[in-house]
Each structure stands twice: as structure tokens, then as C-alpha cells.
Design a protein around this nucleic acid. Structure first.
Lengths: 238, 238
DNA sequence: CGCAACTGAATGACGGTTCATTCAGCCCCC
DNA sequence: GGGGGCTGAATGAACCGTCATTCAGTTGCG
């Protein structure tokens, strides 16, 4: 056990105040205060990139510091530990992603269109924020129990957003009703993630990724269609 | 460069001779050599379990040693390093899995049946050898470049086996031809893996997993059906 | 000045790897 | 057949490099 006294997880964009009592929760300075305040953000940005490149464990705190252009110690002014850095990264980015996603989906009234949008969004995530995507999936799988526990709900929220799209499609008759929206959401995420994994591992150019996503969307959408004539799903009946 | 230092070269049956794992990936030593020779296997077994439970980095070599019931140093008689242990694990298990899979699939002449079998096999892998499955995906995502490079081909072989099933289905007209077998193979793997991820992360009982897999099989199989009326390539038209 | 932000060398723990030592089995000569 | 000597697998405590984290100091703004 590495004696890691469960301190409070730092939050906010609070100015250097180590512990980060998330006391004054009044406003979100956002990207404001460039002059000084962008230090936290710089560190986070450096962290996504470095973690994605080398993995959490192989990344030295000093690597992140260097990439962010700050001193090692500075990181500890904003985050209580390396683990906290990862967790904060997670929280920060997923919050933003989710907000964006919900806003975007709100504009599309048709479930099928939305599902395609989800796939494209996910594709965009993989392409443009591949680093974040990598950190997310990797982290969820192998980091400490603490991280896993804190990160899971955030990730789940993302999946739920996808599930909601499917659920609505089922309600209005766009999609077959004999599958669980949550299951399908996870499967879709996994499928796209699987493609990305191969992409990350080796060859596969961007074009390939895009084409792959289109094919997957095609298969999923057809697979989800309501089948008017077919009897019922052979959903395995033990 | 921590290339395996050319240690001694004792041939023997399989007695300790550190030696980096090398290619003799043909014969299946089986569970033979019981008396003494099961030490390597004991270590490997302990490693899967321990790595899966704590992840590669958080696992101490001494943990594996303890789980295997051997001394720390003994591990270095069979493997050149912790990393080599992981790699050997990979090779050993994937070889066996692949062999088994090919044999099983050979018995089923119908592509659709085979595809279902693949899903079930994968499901079985996740259920009964979840530890192995966890190690595989986690490893592929975050370990060192060295491991990644060596492990990737093995994993690719597994995916290719799946792809072959789809490909054959396309040839004999069971599946639509406008999707890449490889892409679909990866997507299928990913989908099932995504389900497993959720399962690992939290709730979801076994029954749930089985049901989920059945639903996914249903959606994929329908999604892959040849669409008699549909034109040809709805696969995104640039 | 005085305080806050920041720095980066020093610290200490942790854990992979090594290697001197043990000892069970085997060989061979008497 | 027996025991002295040899072999090498197995052991596990110690070694040593590698970081995460700390903190005494520096900087610079008010």
C-alpha cells in the first residue's frame, strides 16, 4: 500500500491552494485569466498527451511538468497527487464532452439521425481527441481501484447519453425493442473503440477509420431496424 | 537495450534456462511433464490471475511468485524479466486459444452458425477466462512499446480468424459484401469487449452478460444479412 | 518589505533484479 | 551397496536505480 492519505480531490480552477477545498463554488472562470490561470489547463493538456503516449505508469510526473513548461512542484500546487491529476483530467474532459454532446444531439429530432451523429461524434472523439480516448479506455481498465471507482460514473454518464438515443428510437418505433438500449450503447462504444484500437496499434489511416465507422453505422442501423415480418429475435432462450 | 542477454543454452526437456521466449510456437507441450516441469506453467497461471487483478504495473514480481508458490528468484529462471513474463503469457495463451478456435470452427460448415460460435467462444473467453481477456486488452493498450509490438501480431491472428469467418460468409452469399471483414471482426470483438468492460466495472451478473451477447449476435447477424433490395454501397459516398 | 506563486534539488520508498548460498538428487568408484 | 562429491534448480535477502512527493528557497508583484 502506498500510503496515500485520501485527501480531497482537487477541483475547480482554484488558484494555487494545494488541497483545493472546493469551497467557493461560485463561478467557473473557465479559460479566463490567461495571464496566470492557464497553468492548470496547461498541466491538464500536457497530461492527456503524455499519459496517452506512454501510459499512466510509465509517465513520470516530471515528464508532464516538462511538457507543460512548469516545474515538478507546481503540479502539486494544483493536484494532490499523480493519481489526482489523472482523475481530474478525466472529470474535466468528460464533463465538457458530455455537455457538448447533449447540446448537439438536442438539435436532431430524428433518432436515426441522432444515432449516426453519435457515431460520428465518437469518431470525431477518436480522431481529434484520440489521446483523451486512449486515456479513458486504458484508465478504466487498469488503474487503481480508486481511480476506477471515481471514473466509472463519469464514463457511465457518457454511455447513458448514447443509450438514451436508442431508447427514444425504440419509443417512437424507429428501432426494434427487443434489445437493451444500454447493452447496445456499450456495444456501439466498444465496436468503435475496437476499431480505434487497431488503428492505434498499427496501420490504418484516417480515411480507413472513417470508412470503418460508416460501415459500422450501416450494420448497426440495419441491425436495429424494426423487422416487420420476422417473428421474434432468437435472443437465446435458456 | 535490454535485449535478452544470451545466457547459457541448455537444451533439455524444459528445465530452467531463462532464455527469452522464442518461437517454438508449434508443439503443444500440453500439461505433460508433471513432476517438475509444471513450474513454468504454475508461474504463468499465477501471472494471468495477478496481472488481471492488479494490472501489470501494480503487480509485484513477488506477488506472482507468492501466488505461484515459488521464490522470487525462480521466476527469473524461466523468464528474463517481468516484461518477458507478460509476453510469454500472451504468446502461450493466445496460441492455445487460436488453435482451439480454429479446430472448433472447422466443424461448423455454415458461416452464420460459425459467426454465432465465434460470439459464443468470445463470450466463453470473457466468462471463463476473463482474467486472460483482461490482460489481453489492457496490455494491448498501455504497456511498453516492446510488449505492444510483440503482442499485436498474436492478437491480430485472433482477429483474422474471426474475419475469415465473415469473409467466407460473404463468398457464399450469407453476408453482405459491402463491409470489410476485418473491420467487422474488430467491431465485433470491440462490442463484446465493451460489454465485458461494463461487466467488469460494476454490476451485471453472468446472466446479463449472456443475454447481452445474444442481443449483440442478433443485431450483428441481422445487420450483416444480405439485403436483396438494397442497391450496393450505402457505405458512405464521398 | 511581504506575500503568493513558483521552482527544482533532495528525500525516501518501493520493487525489479541479482547472486551467494542451500540442498536434493545423481553418478561413479571403491 | 554405499558414500563422497558434483550438479544445478531453487531460494530470498540485499542491492540499487527509479520516481513521487516535499520543502527550503527564489522570484516578482503590490
Amino acid at each position: 500500500m502506498n500510503a496515500a492519505p485520501p485527501k480531497r480531490r482537487s477541483k475547480k480552477v482554484a488558484p494555487p491552494a494545494a488541497e483545493a477545498r472546493d469551497a467557493n463554488a461560485s463561478s467557473l472562470p473557465e479559460t479566463a485569466a490567461r495571464g496566470r490561470g492557464d497553468k492548470r489547463e496547461r498541466i491538464l493538456a500536457a497530461a492527456v498527451s503524455t499519459f496517452a503516449q506512454h501510459g499512466f505508469f510509465s509517465t513520470r510526473v516530471s515528464d508532464v511538468a516538462k511538457a507543460a513548461g512548469v516545474a515538478d512542484g507546481t503540479i502539486y500546487l494544483y493536484f494532490t497527487s499523480k493519481e489526482d491529476l489523472l482523475l481530474s483530467l478525466f472529470q474535466d474532459r468528460l464533463d465538457k464532452l458530455l455537455a457538448y454532446m447533449k447540446k448537439e444531439l438536442g438539435r436532431l429530432p430524428d433518432p436515426k439521425t441522432r444515432l449516426r451523429a453519435v457515431i460520428e461524434l465518437q469518431l470525431g472523439l477518436l480522431e481529434n481527441q484520440r489521446e483523451l480516448a486512449e486515456v479513458i479506455t486504458v484508465t478504466l481498465r487498469q488503474s487503481s481501484r480508486l481511480v476506477k471507482e471515481n471514473a466509472t460514473p463519469l464514463f457511465a454518464a457518457y454511455l447513458d447519453a448514447i443509450a438514451t438515443v436508442i431508447q427514444e428510437g425504440q419509443r417512437d418505433g424507429s428501432f426494434r425493442k427487443d434489445v437493451s438500449p444500454f447493452t447496445m450503447a456499450r456495444a456501439m462504444y466498444g465496436a468503435l473503440d475496437g476499431i480505434a484500437l487497431t488503428w492505434v496499434l498499427g496501420k490504418a489511416d484516417r480515411g480507413g477509420l472513417k470508412r470503418a465507422a460508416a460501415q459500422i453505422a450501416g450494420v448497426f442501423l440495419r441491425g436495429l431496424e424494426v423487422d416487420p415480418d420476422a417473428s421474434e429475435e432468437p435472443t437465446a432462450a435458456p
